[in-house]
Amino acid sequence: MMIEAFQLTGMLLTLAAALSLYRVLKGPTIADRIVAVNVIGTYALVALVLVAYISSEQLFFIDIALTYALLNFMLSIVAARYLGTGRVFG
């Protein structure tokens, strides 16, 4: 019964991600797109944790989710730095 709850949560999460995808495709400025990609990254993180339980307790997905959280943070910091200063290093 809990597995079905996880599946339903995952479906609703996908719906929310699809709504955010509109902003990625449309977004008037590039900053809107990056914000939307960051949001979808957070959804993907939660979806990875859900997948760990839906697919018969493949718990290594949680480690992947942890790494994904790090990557998501790096993405927005580097993208913001590039937007603000025009360079990534130095």
Partner: peptide, 9 residues
């Protein structure tokens, strides 16, 4: 960081 980057952009 994003807000500051967007403003400076």
């Amino acid at each position: 960081a994003m807000a500051k980057g967007a403003y400076l952009y």
